[in-house]
């Protein structure tokens, strides 16, 4: 089957495969009414994983070609300065309470993610993989890589975290007696990043704005706290 490898050798083969898989997944997602369980990243990932396995392409070979897409992620993190500055007045107005809630939320996110691995004493790579799970995917993947985690697994865990928060978060908040839209949004943003934020915008504009703030601030704090938590657990 020589003709297949003629396709695989093209420098943009993996980029083409990735964009096409994502575009199809997005169309499916939009046609089905955007359910959390059919999140396009999850579907595109599953489809691509299947294609790589069927064609017998090693992940390293795929990643070498798809590198430009992966690297662009870091550029997008730098650009997060734009939404951060847009929400600046909101952050300043809610100031200290918001920052306090952020520190509590971010610590709880790290603590609950790492409680079981810490108690059971798993490998350092697994701790690094799970630690940044509540941060937005771009940030979480970079934090995981930096600490020696398995970036691919981190990405899937982060997206699943978002899906869980988006699907069950509003119910949990309801049962817990959280009525304030600002608090609902902030909690969804801190715990389940962009997917939670998208869900918060369905609650109200206020919830969405606070979710955006929560997501961005938690991404920043996770970059600072995850290495500390990691050092604490892996040394003990």
């Amino acid at each position: 089957m020589d003709w297949i490898s003629s396709f695989e050798r093209q420098p943009l083969f993996a980029v083409c495969l990735t964009v096409a898989a994502y575009a199809s997944a997005e169309i499916l997602w939009q046609r089905t009414g955007k359910p959390a369980l059919l999140h396009p990243v999850l579907i595109a990932t599953t489809v691509l994983a299947g294609i790589l396995i069927v064609l017998g392409i090693a992940y390293e070979d795929y990643l070498r070609q798809a590198q430009p897409i992966d690297e662009a992620l870091a550029l997008l993190i730098v650009l997060l300065a734009v939404p951060l500055c847009r929400q600046f007045s909101l952050i300043r107005k809610s100031g200290l309470p918001l920052v306090t809630a952020l520190v509590v939320g971010s610590t709880v996110a790290l603590g609950t993610a790492l409680a079981l691995p810490a108690v059971m004493g798993v490998g350092d790579d697994l701790v690094a993989t799970i630690a940044p799970k509540s941060a937005t995917t771009a940030v979480a993947v970079k934090v995981s890589e930096r600490l020696g985690g398995v970036a691919g697994l981190t990405a899937v865990i982060v997206i699943s975290t978002g899906m869980f928060g988006g699907a069950f978060g509003p119910l949990i908040l309801e049962l817990g007696g959280v009525r304030d839209d600002r608090a609902k949004g902030f909690a969804l943003g801190v715990a389940s990043h962009a997917i939670g934020t998208a869900r918060a915008f369905q609650i109200s504009e206020t919830a969405g704005a606070f979710a955006s703030v929560g997501m961005i601030l938690n991404a920043l704090l996770t970059m600072a706290l995850a290495p500390v938590a990691f050092a604490f657990i892996t040394s003990g």
Binding site: S94, L96, P97, L98, T100, A101, V104, G105, V108, A109, T112, A113, L114, A115, L116, P117, M120, V122, L126, I130, K133, S134, L153, I157, S160, T161, F164, G165, F168, G169, I172, L173, G176, G177, V178, R179, D180, R182, A183, K184, F186, A187, L188, V190, A191, S192, G196, G214
Partner: peptide, 27 residues
């Protein structure tokens, strides 16, 4: 098992505590 516990238990508790704390502080 670690991954599932982190996603379900971890995310649930984080949402609840962050929601309650920010509601109390922002009130």
């Amino acid at each position: 098992i670690h991954v599932t516990v982190a996603i379900v238990f971890g995310t649930g508790v984080t949402i609840l505590i962050t929601g309650l704390v920010s509601q109390a502080l922002m009130r």
